[in-house]
Design a protein around this nucleic acid. Sequence first.
DNA 1: TGAAATGTTGGGGCG
DNA 2: ACGCCCCAACATTTC
Length: 473
Amino acid sequence: MSPIVPQTAAPVVVWFRRDLRLADNPALAAAARDGRPIIPLFIHDPAGPPRPIGAASAWWLDKSLKALMADLAALGSPLILRRGNAGAKLRELITETGASAVFWNRLYDSASMTRDAAVSRDLSAVGIDCQSFNGTLLNEPLAVKTGAGGPYRVFSPYWRAVRMSAGDTPPSPAPARLARPPVQIHCDRLADWNLHPSKPDWSGGFADWAPGEAGARARLDTFLDVAANHYIDARNEPGVDGTSRLSAHLHFGEISPRQVWAAADYAALHRDASLRQIEVFQKELGWREFNHHLLFHFPHMTHANFNPKFDDFAWRRDGFGLDAWRAGRTGYPIVDAGMRQLWATGWMHNRVRMIVASFLIKDLMIDWREGETWFWDTLVDADLANNVANWQWTAGSGADAAPYFRVFNPTLQGEKFDPAGEYVRRWVPEIAHLPATDIHQPWRCVSSSAYLAPIVDHAAARDRALAAYESIK
DNA sequence: TGAAATGTTGGGGCG
DNA sequence: ACGCCCCAACATTTC
């Protein structure tokens, strides 16, 4: 039982950032433990850190905040919204309310850490109790070290070192209720933040997403019920709903990796899900952990090549190619399907992300940073650590990266992973009438005239890329 | 979390 | 019956 605390006790600010949930939220749980009044706060700083928010992410944030507002109101203390510089807005709120403490869950990119350290220093100097928690990772970057005491650079040994203990901290429940402070506190109108696109509103295709804690939980349960037993194969087929689709929910912290891990464990133990399948799914959480580990220890990799040899790589400047790639007009069905799915839904199947990334980097020889920037703006799950690490992985410039000679053949990838052509038919209607035998190479068919010819010849582009990679070996 | 080139094997057609 | 060739299927190497 919580001790009785007088209503006059100074409130605690719980500063929500990328932890937009009530359950398994360590900062919220710690603040609520002793019954003091809670001021849940979200500050929108359009400038970041870590970067100005992407348009698709802004769409998601809008809905996620709406859900969090409803959930917190039901718990007893409504969410306060403020816009601007975080440090300034926190000081403002503390002056208004007499709050004596600020609790938050930590972030791991360098810009956010710098900001948070400054906030902590400034507030602590005037007697505010600042406390931070781990609500975002199974293992924080500093908690994992190689035998030699440094950070890991290769996934397999990293995962070997942490996977057995990944589920050691079980998730905690949401607080039963929250005390609200007795004073009236100004709250911005969410609609005034213009996170939802207007003029034009291009978000019509985003309707299947359910941002927010309840949507995240439902998505996880559905996945573990239906898809988890076929995960190993089905996850590679973009025409099949075989992946968890939890990426955006995890990015915004609507569900924690601990919750996902524990639910997967539970499914393996009690719901007849195959342990082998579940372990492969949990390993994907491992990649998320590894990417955050890398970004923490090598913060420059957001903008610079992890492997400096790539600083000499002869990237091509190709505005035409870049535009065609962005628009899904490359003439390669699986590439165009992916880019159009991204634009329409704010999300792309992971297998196809690898294919389109390989195409941009190796077939077009365009700098991975161009692709990373586009994904940042168009993905609802845009996450600095995952985005940067995965792009560098594909480019070959990253840690534990794909070898330079691994060039995806978009035709073969299509035939292998979308054998019936369902995915391509859905997103490239111009060639929906083609039979499965031709749909990944429509140039063989006269009846594909509504569809454009490939903007590059893959075989020639592959040779060009291999030659360029050879020169920086 | 490749693909292409090259090498090897073995069955079957054929003289 | 036997050797030769062809070539698909599979394995290995190379990029």
